[in-house]
């Protein structure tokens, strides 16, 4: 059995070396199952080099966060270490009204824009996956372009647009902008989910007399739920993260958390932001850590 598999691999390599693309290993059957592959992962010199790079990168990625974390306990405002203190955390939770105001705005915008984008994007995904109609190519390409266009272009064009139609910059314009950049992500994630399942289920439902609405709510919705949920969560995350687009379309009274942090940075290093960062990083870890096993499931897949 193993010999047979290796033989397939030989042929594939021969083909590759000659510049002919072999069939994908999974299809040709030459690919061993994941467990078999682990067995092949012998520790050799080359692998050790890549591991070294990996750990160096992890150190590089974490170093700034560790420095922020350490300095959030510094008792003085300057860069030098003067002693341990919780004063910046006290300031963060008790004396930073504007910051929490910005946090509230961010939460409203994130939930509002993710909801709108999920509704529009999911419906469009259902529409383009099951039907063909004259503007289907338009919907498909319009759902891809905003993803690859640099954010600055999206932000500037929306600013010019809002000025043109006379819409005052504020929470409404931020919500519109966030919904716009969130739609493509929801659309693509739900589309991917819809591609995975057997469309004959829908035909069966229709043959058994289900109306379009019944089919949508009782067949398609439960099946696409994982896609819809991941679309919604992705949208919430993207919205909470966004700085560049928000920067252009926000007005007085619609400061989001990233905008607040931006203005704080412009005034120089502030230990309250250190404390906020530490809290946010800790929150991130707490949020992702339980999902580790899903990562593993995904990785194994």
């Amino acid at each position: 059995m193993k010999k047979l598999r290796l033989h397939g691999a030989y042929r594939a390599v021969r083909a590759t070396l000659k510049g002919i693309r072999p069939l994908p290993p999974r299809i040709s059957g030459s690919g061993p199952p994941a467990t078999g592959r682990k067995g092949h992962a012998k520790r050799r010199r080359g692998i050790a080099v890549s591991d070294f790079v990996y750990w160096a990168v992890i150190a590089f990625l974490f170093a700034p966060l560790v420095v922020l974390f350490a300095y959030s306990f510094n008792s003085s405002k300057s860069g030098s270490w003067t002693g341990f203190s919780f004063m910046w955390y006290e300031r963060l939770f008790l004396g930073s009204g504007l910051l929490w105001n910005a946090f509230g705005n961010s939460a409203i915008i994130a939930l509002g824009s993710a909801s709108a984008a999920t509704l529009l994007g999911s419906l469009a995904a259902v529409g383009t996956s099951r039907y063909s109609f004259w503007y289907r190519p338009y919907v498909k390409s319009m759902s891809f372009i905003p993803m690859i266009l640099p954010e600055i272009i999206v932000g500037v064009s929306l600013l010019v647009f809002f000025a043109g139609v006379g819409l005052k910059l504020g929470l409404l314009t931020v919500w519109i902008a966030h919904t716009t950049f969130n739609i493509p992500f929801v659309y693509l994630l739900v589309s991917a989910r819809l591609e995975e399942f057997d469309p004959s289920i829908i035909e069966a439902a229709r043959d058994l007399g289900a109306t379009e609405v019944q089919t949508l709510l009782r067949i398609i919705l439960p099946i696409t739920m994982p896609g819809i949920a991941s679309g919604f969560l992705t949208a919430v995350t993207l919205s909470l993260e966004d700085f560049v687009i928000t920067f252009f379309v926000a007005g007085p009274g619609s400061t989001t958390l990233p905008l607040f942090i931006y203005s704080a940075i412009r005034f120089g290093v502030s230990p309250v932001i250190n404390a906020l960062s530490a809290v946010m990083v800790a929150g991130t870890v707490l949020l992702i850590y339980p999902a580790r096993n899903f990562l593993k499931a995904y990785a194994a897949h």
Partner: peptide, 19 residues
């Protein structure tokens, strides 16, 4: 380990480098 810093707020990561 790759995702944690990635998930940390964009501006906070820039701010960390300023610090």
């Amino acid at each position: 380990l790759v995702i944690v810093p990635f998930w940390t707020n964009f501006l906070i990561r820039i701010y960390a480098w300023i610090a």
